[in-house]
Each structure stands twice: as C-alpha cells, then as structure tokens.
C-alpha cells in the first residue's frame, strides 16, 4: 500500500541529486560569487591581508549564508513581498550578531582584527543576493546546498588571495614565518629579499582577484562576453 501512495506524490528529490550537487559545484567555478558575479568585493579587499583572518571570515559567511538561506527558505511563503528585504535583513542581522559574539568568545584576537568587517557581513551582497535570488523561491534542501556552494566559492577565492598577500606581503603563512625572520634578517632576507609592501595595501587584492578572473576566463571560453 505504502508503495502505491508514494507513487502518487511528486517524486522526492534526494538532497544529493545531480541538480542539487550542481548547486554546490557551480558557484565554485563557473558562477563564482566573487570572480564571476563580482559580489562581496569589499570584504575581499579588507580582510585578505592574512590567511587566518580570511579563514575565519569565510567560516562566518558560511554560517550566516547557510543558516540564513534555510531560514528564509522556510519562511518564504509567509514573508509579504513588500517587506521582504526588511525581513531578510532581520534574519541576517541576528545571525551576524551570533557569529560576532561567538568569534569574540572563542577566537578573541581574530575577532579584534576582523573588527567591523564581521558586522558588515550584513551588507554583503552575496548574502542578500542569494536570499533574493534563491532562498525566496526554493525549498529548504536546495537552499542549504546553494548556501554551501556560494560560501565555499567565496571562501576559496578569499583564502587564495590571502595566501598570496600574506606570503609576499609579510613573508608568513597563518602567522608562521616562511622566508626567515624579517627583523633579524636571516633566511631569505639575508640575501637581499624584501617583503612586498604593496601586497599589504588594498589595491593588490583587486589586482590578484583580477588575475584570478583573467585565468578563469581564458580557460573557460563560455565566460567570454561577445561585443
């Protein structure tokens, strides 16, 4: 009996169906929120000086985006469309406050460095964009996958940019010296190597993101626009 009953319902989609998996993999490359949609650039500039900061920023965005997407998706039929932006903001704001307090409690020194930028996740275009474009019109499962995909897409670009900037800008990775001690001048520094100060300045983040976009577009012809 049960088998017959199930057949009459719309076929249930598995959380890991091909379509849902695409929701995760797409934002990693061909639809990356930073390099293709060019969203969330401000935070990519501000907190990619060190890998550690970039990592915790990515974790924060992951938390906010995944939970927020699910909450909005659950509420999507209850939210009046006229005030939907305000409702979305309330959801984001509460999640961001949770993240902010958690960071302050468990990784206080990182939280101090990230300072205002955790709070500014509220205005991160990626988050509002996913709420508007995806969570408002999809079920909870796909929204979860979409949130994961987009935050991973955001995270790997952020960490890659931070890797380059920290390695060449400060000669360290995750705070650990790579090229030797800069102040004492041993290791690579003893033969005249100097840290690149430009890597610490924000414009370099844009240039590195630009180079990533360049590589990506030259590899994938589908992304090249016609003129």
């Amino acid at each position: 009996m049960s088998e017959v009953a199930e057949k009459t319902k719309a076929p249930r989609e598995s959380l890991f169906s091909k379509k849902n998996r695409k929701l995760v993999t797409d934002p990693l490359t061909d639809n990356n929120p930073i390099t293709i949609q060019v969203l969330g650039i401000c935070s990519a500039l501000a907190i990619t000086v060190q890998v550690e900061q970039a990592f915790w920023m990515s974790v924060s965005v992951l938390f906010v985006l995944v939970l927020g997407n699910m909450v909005i998706s659950m509420l999507r039929n209850l939210i009046p469309s006229r005030i939907r932006i305000i409702v979305q903001l309330v959801v984001v704001a509460s999640l961001v406050i949770i993240v902010d307090l958690m960071l302050a409690a468990f990784v206080p020194d990182v939280s101090e460095k990230l300072s205002v930028f955790v709070g500014l996740i509220i205005t991160n275009c990626i988050i509002m964009g996913r709420f508007e474009a995806f969570a408002m019109g999809n079920k909870v499962g796909p929204s979860l996958m979409d949130g994961l995909g987009n935050s991973f897409g955001y995270a790997w670009i952020l960490i890659l940019v931070a890797f380059v900037r920290e390695l060449f800008g400060s000669g360290t990775l995750w705070g650990q010296p790579i090229f030797g001690d800069y102040i004492e001048g041993n290791g690579l520094y003893s033969i005249g190597y100097v840290n690149n100060n430009m890597m610490i300045l924000p414009p370099m983040a844009l240039i590195i993101v630009g180079v990533i976009i360049w590589v990506q577009r030259s590899r994938n012809k589908a992304l090249i626009e016609d003129h």
Binding site: V194, N196, N197
Partner: peptide
C-alpha cells in the same frame, strides 16, 4: 609606482 609602493625603503 609599483616599486615606490612595494619597496618604499629602496
């Protein structure tokens, strides 16, 4: 300009 901002001491 790149050198000026990247290696100001030099």
């Amino acid at each position: 300009a790149f050198l000026f901002f990247a290696y100001p001491t030099s």
